[in-house]
Simulated assay, not measured.
Amino acid sequence: MDRTVVITGASSGVGLAAAEQLAAQGDQVVVVGRNPERLAAAVAKVRQAGNGREPGQFRADFESLKEVRELAAHLLETYPKIDVLANNAGGMIAQYRKTVDGHEATIQGNHLGPFLLTNLLRERLAGGRIVNTASDAHRSGRPDPDDFTGGRGFRAYGGAKAANILFASEAARRWPDITSVSFHPGVVRTNFGDGTLTRLFYRFAPFLVTPEKAGALLVWLATTPDLVDGGYYVGHDPKAPASYAADPVAAAKLWDASAAAVGI
């Protein structure tokens, strides 16, 4: 099946590995990344994996909602159908900072930006699938729908990953024509985070999962026919997240607050 698959955060790590694997299967892959040089290198790898088929590409930084809107406009203009949206962009930010939109950078890059993109593409995704890269790090924090300006470090990251899970479950309730899931990719050996110690950990810790293995899980979630809609996957099985990441009342409140924060 020739699917159109959009992968954000696809210029390295899990996203790039999944993009290469999907291209090798014959899918039309759209590679989205923040860094122009890494994006260009990723596009070359995906092209090679796809036996010369030209992947789509777009540079966007999810810490700018303007750039997220520009990405959505490009996708809507270019692709009449999007079969899979993999919301994989994000990361852990060592030092506190606000984005140009006034939100804390971790929650915007990991949740508000993907939330906006998905909502803007909603009609184009009808009959398709949304795969959100979450993490078991969600157990270390919870999102505050009343305040997207606070938090820092690992707790902020945990809260953002809990938001990914809540978003997937609420999307499944609100959009029954789209399958929506989230997953824990494992602790992946990749270029992750922006602090020196964080980067060293995610490159050299001995128990890390390879990007190829985590990417294969993303591919499985993007392509396998029978998934638990709204489920949080660890490996090939849905698992119960932390109780606050499984609360439908909290999910609905987060959705409404997120919509207000991004202006939709």
Score class of each variant (00 low, 15 high):
Asn132Ser: 12
Thr106Asp: 09
Thr223Asn: 12
Ala160Arg: 00
Glu123Asn: 12
Leu254His: 08
Leu39Thr: 12
Leu200Gly: 01
Asn88Thr: 08
Gly109Met: 10
Asn87Met: 10
Asp177Thr: 13
Pro225Gln: 05
Ala259Asp: 01
Phe58Glu: 11
Gly235Pro: 07
Val46Ala: 09
Arg173His: 09
Thr133His: 01
Glu54Ile: 10
Thr179Val: 15
His236Lys: 14
Ala205Glu: 04
Arg59Gln: 15
Pro185Asp: 13
Glu212Arg: 11
Val234Ala: 06
Gln57Ala: 15
Glu67Phe: 08
Asn132Ala: 13
Tyr244Ile: 11
Ser140Gln: 13
Leu112Lys: 03
Leu218Thr: 08
Arg174Gln: 10
Lys213Ser: 09
Lys161Gly: 08
Pro80Val: 02
Trp220Phe: 13
Asn110Trp: 02
Lys253Gln: 14
Ala42Tyr: 00
Arg129Asn: 05
Trp255Arg: 01
Trp220His: 14
Phe192Leu: 15
Ala44Ser: 12
Pro225Arg: 07
Tyr233Gly: 01
Tyr202Gly: 02
Gly90Asp: 09
Arg174Trp: 07
Ala105Thr: 10
His103Thr: 00
Gly230Arg: 04
Arg129Leu: 01
Val31Arg: 03
Tyr233Asn: 06
Asp177Phe: 00
Ala260Arg: 15
Arg173Val: 12
Arg53Val: 14
Gly26His: 08
Ser11His: 11
Glu212Gln: 15
Pro36Tyr: 11
Asp256Tyr: 02
Ala214Leu: 06
Gly13Leu: 10
Ala222Asn: 05
Asp146Val: 07
Arg155Pro: 00
Gly235Met: 07
Ala246Val: 12
Gly90Lys: 10
Ile7Lys: 03
Thr190Phe: 06
Val187Met: 14
Lys98Arg: 09
Glu37Ser: 11
Val29Leu: 00
Gly193Asp: 10
Asn51Thr: 11
Phe115Ile: 09
Met1Val: 14
Thr133Arg: 02
Leu221Ser: 07
Asn35Met: 06
Glu67Thr: 03
Ala19Tyr: 04
Leu16Pro: 07
Leu197Arg: 12
Ala40Thr: 15
Leu197Asn: 09
Pro185Arg: 13
Thr4Val: 15
Val131Lys: 02
